[in-house]
């Protein structure tokens, strides 16, 4: 007689062995220790850039937060560019040349994004105008 429990325990152990010795994907974390640059200042720059770069295959995550392989590749590319002495602007340009503006979480100033960047300011000015026009003193 084979005990049913016994089998499930065996399966469990096998699955766990696979777990323990094969690195596996996980959805929700980013930077890994072997990517980190030794120079703290450079690493901080890399982190700042990565926070502004969208993980293209994820949903609303920056590459700093994502564990997708593509995100990891981009993090490594950014760090090697920094080590080469490239400036932030050059790195952004390198990325947008390949992936388009979609990769930037902070949209760039452009003709198509004029409204995006200026409308909040205009909303604010209209707001101030409304307040002033209701002020007794101004009458």
């Amino acid at each position: 007689m084979i005990n049913k429990n016994h089998i499930s325990t065996k399966i469990f152990i096998i699955v766990m062995m696979i777990f323990l010795f094969l690195p596996f994907f996980n959805k929700s974390y980013g930077v890994e220790p072997d990517e980190v640059l030794e120079d703290k200042k450079l690493e901080l720059r890399a982190r700042d850039i990565s926070k502004n770069i969208r993980c293209m295959i994820c949903q609303n995550q920056s590459i700093d937060e994502s564990s997708a392989p593509l995100a990891k590749d981009l993090r490594i590319i950014i760090r090697s560019k920094i080590k080469e002495g490239k400036k932030n602007d050059e790195i952004y340009e390198f990325l947008t040349d390949r992936y388009g503006d979609f990769i930037l979480l902070k949209p760039p100033f452009k003709l198509t994004t004029l409204a995006l960047w200026f409308l909040p300011f205009i909303f604010f000015v209209i707001g101030v105008y409304v307040v002033l026009s209701h002020n007794k003193k101004s009458k």
């Binding site: 502004n52 969208r54 388009g100 503006d101 979609f102 930037l104 902070k106 198509t112």
Partner: peptide
């Protein structure tokens, strides 16, 4: 809604994320 508009009107895609 801006990214949706841009995508509908032009063929470009942009992201509007936390920094904005």
């Amino acid at each position: 809604v801006y990214p949706l508009l841009i995508e509908a009107l032009t063929s470009n895609k942009i992201s509007v994320g936390e920094p904005y």
